[in-house]
Amino acid sequence: MGVVMRLSFLEPLYVESGPFASVYLDTSRDVEHPDRALARRWHRLRADLARQGADAALLGALEDAVGSDAGVPGSHGQAVFAAGGALVLDGELPRPPARDSAVYGPLPDAMPLVAQHLPEIPYLAVVVHYGGPPTATAHGWVTMEAEAGSWPASSVEPGPRLHHHVRVSDWHHSSVRLGHALDDRARRAHADLVVVAGDEWAGNVLVRRLPHALRDKVVRARGPTPTDTGRALLEPQLRTLLQGRLAGHDRDLVNVFIGRRALGGPATEGLADTVAALQRGQVEALLLNRPPPPSLRLWTGPRATEVALAEADLHAFGVRAPHEEPADEALVRALVGTRAELTVVPEAVLPLDGGVGALLRYSDSGRIWYDGPASLTRRG
């Protein structure tokens, strides 16, 4: 099973009481005069936040953080959140946002950040280069580099890459030893797949000598394979290979949901029933076909579980002054506050009533439910 996508990295946002400034902007470095372009973008967003009521201290905290990812090359973006005159969270976006935005309101606008980091697919990237004569001879050499990471966040495991420089005459023998080293790295990363690129002959030798369980996860990648770009190894190829692919754990969630829905197990579907389950802290994993549209609103109270379709529902729970907020902001807060998961599942894979469903921690009847080997499990 792959690494579980938790939302614990958002917890600092919900320690603060707000109001929050949520900023999304394109901080790409692959444009002409990137610093000048970023300054123009931020100037517009800063003015927009000031019109919405953000004070000078809050704007100053944001300004100090905007562009702090200048050392990251290529196309990307930044998500920055501040409250109470201080920076609360600064996150890298693997892709630039569809449009720059700045929102000042009671809850942080975290869904675009979450959506860009779903699904997190753990992988092992391996690049094999052959250097020497046009045909493999004893006078050449083979270089192998490998790195574990997760996509689409382009985050990589801490520590150095695996790097080995081997004579061609030793490559067949060394590949067995290197295969075990790769297997160990892949197991520690819970890698769903192994992406192998570079020289075809040297790569084939290595793949044939991998342990069987790892060999079954191999995907071959084509195209240029530079290893000194300052970015994740094989990042351009990963987008092509992994776009639209579900992580292993997300596939398990889908299978469990389908099974429970068919057999009447602890699962729910549709916005009304899912919100009711969130009120009870009952949701283990929320499944969405797509993030909610901006027009969809929910009512919220001070606590994460105080979320409802109607203001009267919260009054019935004793909430004195509910607020109507965008549904995506309310849902993310409820998930973080109840330590639930979130995954975005394409409608072609699993169409959901109203685009939303949930796996539940328990059934209302108290029935114990067993899903078999694919049962939903929790990692730290």
Score class of each variant (00 low, 15 high):
V194S: 01
V194L: 08
V195E: 00
V195W: 04
V196R: 00
G198M: 03
G198S: 09
D199E: 07
D199G: 04
D199V: 06
E200C: 08
E200R: 09
E200D: 13
W201D: 06
A202K: 00
A202V: 03
A202T: 02
G203D: 02
N204S: 12
N204D: 11
L206H: 02
V207N: 02
V207A: 05
R208Q: 05
R209K: 12
R209E: 09
P211M: 10
P211A: 11
H212P: 15
A213G: 14
A213C: 15
L214G: 02
L214K: 03
L214W: 03
L214P: 03
R215G: 07
R215D: 08
R215E: 10
D216W: 15
D216P: 15
D216T: 15
K217Y: 12
K217F: 07
V218L: 10
V218T: 11
V218Q: 06
V219L: 14
R220Y: 08
R220K: 14
A221C: 12
A221L: 06
R222F: 10
R222E: 13
R222D: 15
R222K: 15
R222N: 14
G223M: 09
G223S: 11
T225D: 00
T225R: 01
P226C: 04
T227I: 07
T227Q: 03
D228P: 13
D228C: 11
T229S: 09
G230F: 01
G230Q: 02
G230H: 01
G230S: 01
A232F: 04
A232V: 08
A232C: 13
L233C: 04
L233I: 02
L233H: 00
